[in-house]
Design a protein around this nucleic acid. Structure first.
Lengths: 337, 337
DNA sequence: ATGCCTGGTTGGATCGTTCCAATCTTGACG
DNA sequence: CGTCAAGATTGGAACGATCCAACCAGGCAT
């Protein structure tokens, strides 16, 4: 509990500084002294007072991360998983993760400023960057060290970022369906202009263009758009269903909506979601997983190298659950002709 | 950035101590000085160095909380929501939340010890306490300040805790179904012996006994049990379906399984889940919500009063979504005779 | 022997705040 | 007009670590 460096020093018969060196710079000590000191350290169960260290070193190695207030939506689970990975890895790197909440981007920037100036955190992660994001420029201008989870849509200066290659994910999903014999593969996405939504559609579109030679007009006819809610997606996909034999979706909510829309007909329609949330796991449909462990790894690395930029490749998680009339991806039997 | 108490003091023409008092104990100052000092404070944009304060005060007002490593399950989302609430309220109380991960209860205790002795956190939340939980006794013995989220199943000494009254929740759900005219209301739960699982079943059982006079044998015939996975729940509820006209479930996963099992028949069967996770929101079935905001509030309060024990009442969230053949709770039309 | 260098070790100052006790004001009152 | 108490302000010592520069022993060259 209350053992200080001085106690260990007295116990080992050396100076305070030597004990400090034993822990932080062991190479400086004569091997025999080192051994003796370390023995005293764990004889007394000493652990350094982290606050004192931080005060002296003028660094807190703490990552500040905003989390959203609770809402009844599904999207947040993605950030939660990222948070878990980030924390697990931070443990090993001797970093800490400090959470705070904010209800708007402006408030987030204010709180980051505050945390920085009161030295509660000295590194920040901006998650969910989007086109027109004012946070990036605000932090750049203030000279605050941060890594963005999300590519720079329109930042005025370069900065460290990590993002998931959504297009690569939907492309993989689309090609898996093509390989399984499907041809009329539809896409259910969000309204245009959302950055990552457009990115996800692009992967599907590219694959369809390349492999089947479909033109833009044709692609548009295979596309449905809806806000990210199951209920709305049900309605939005209804008109698309007669014309497709498989679906790639920009999110699991949309996928769930599509499945709900298709269920009454009794058809076996392969549907692939995005983000691999609990919704996909629960309903049992395949989904594209964002590899958040890799994202977290890249974020940690980016704190050391502020010029780093990383695009992580997501991977398709297959599921062979056939409840709800969901057909597994590789189920050739469900592919017409 | 680097403005210190001393800078403010110089600017305002007072001593360092006076500035400190202005911020922490304003009543001590003459109103005119107070005003002058505060003016200097925000003229210079001063924010106290939190590390220095913690070092001096020998207290860090930081709550340590373990989060589970990522797994593909649904249960974790509950803890995540609790985390969000806890954090949001901590912000306002000047507390911080520090996360760490552990893969076993033993590791959790070790890490808590460590965080305590290095003064990284000085308050802890133990979540998901269960019968036979060794963590509680370990922390009690070590004299570490903690609040349990979960009642004390077999702790050897009293301690602060907060829990959700699961029985009250399932009772409310059951009574809502009874009021809607249902009589043969089944229960889908976990294998006996899980503490909170037994608690949730008790609420349903009590209501059925009191209102319909069903005996234990009868209740047992209306019960299905399954591990907390959608797939298993589908199989486990199959035999129950012919004998019930509504279901109360111990979790949303179980509810989703029950709904999946009932879907093929085309029946409109009201199903109520527990925890109000994204699965319930996504599929659109009613669920019992744990009121995690109240839980978080009680946890914060318990840190101030270590003898505090709180049982929070959950509330039924109704949904009138009829996809999947889920009937809304109050839908009399679906209630037979 | 004197000086010099290098590997080990040490003392003292410092990070920025709050605690504690002492000092200075002020005003009321005999 | 001096005394005393309460009110307001202040100086200095902590909190517990690391930084920095200085010290010491001894091996080697001069």
């Amino acid at each position: 509990m209350g053992t200080r460096l001085a106690d260990v020093a007295a116990h080992a018969g050396v100076s305070v500084q030597t004990v400090s060196n034993a822990l932080n710079n062991p190479a400086l000590l004569k091997p025999t002294t080192l051994e003796r000191v370390l023995a005293s350290v764990d004889a007394l169960g000493y652990a350094p007072n982290i606050q004192a260290r931080r005060l002296r070193q003028r660094t807190v190695s703490t990552i500040g991360l905003r989390i959203e207030p609770v809402v009844d939506n599904i999207a947040s689970s993605l950030l939660d998983r990222f948070l878990h990975e980030l924390t697990a890895q931070a443990d090993e790197l001797g970093r800490h993760v400090l959470l705070f909440t904010a209800t708007s981007d402006e408030e987030e920037v204010r709180k980051i400023r505050r945390l920085q100036s009161e030295r509660a955190a000295d590194q920040f992660v901006l998650s969910g960057t989007h086109p027109g994001d004012a946070r990036v420029d605000a932090l750049l201008e203030a000279g605050l060290p941060f890594v963005a989870f999300g590519r720079p849509w329109d930042a005025s200066a370069p900065h460290a970022w990590v993002d998931v290659d959504g297009a690569a994910g939907t492309r993989e999903a689309t090609e898996a369906l093509l390989d399984a014999g499907h041809r009329r593969i539809g896409f259910v996405g969000w309204p245009a202009g959302s950055g990552s939504g457009d990115d996800r559609r692009a992967g599907w579109a590219d694959a369809m263009r390349e492999r089947l030679g479909i033109d833009d007009a044709g692609l548009e006819r295979l596309t449905a758009r809806s806000d990210d809610r199951v209920g709305e997606a049900v309605d939005a996909t209804a008109h698309l269903l007669p014309h497709v034999d498989a679906l790639v979706c920009a999110s699991d909510s949309l996928a769930a909506g599509a499945i709900a829309a298709a269920a009454p007909s009794g058809r076996r329609l392969p549907v692939i979601g995005f983000d691999n949330t609990s919704l996909a796991a629960g309903l049992g449909f395949p989904s594209i997983d964002q590899s958040l462990d890799e994202v977290a790894r890249a974020v940690h690395a980016a704190f050391a190298d502020p010029t780093s930029t990383t695009l992580v490749r997501p991977r398709l998680v297959r599921r062979d659950d056939t409840r709800w009339g969901i057909a597994p991806v590789a189920d050739r039997g469900s592919a017409p002709s």
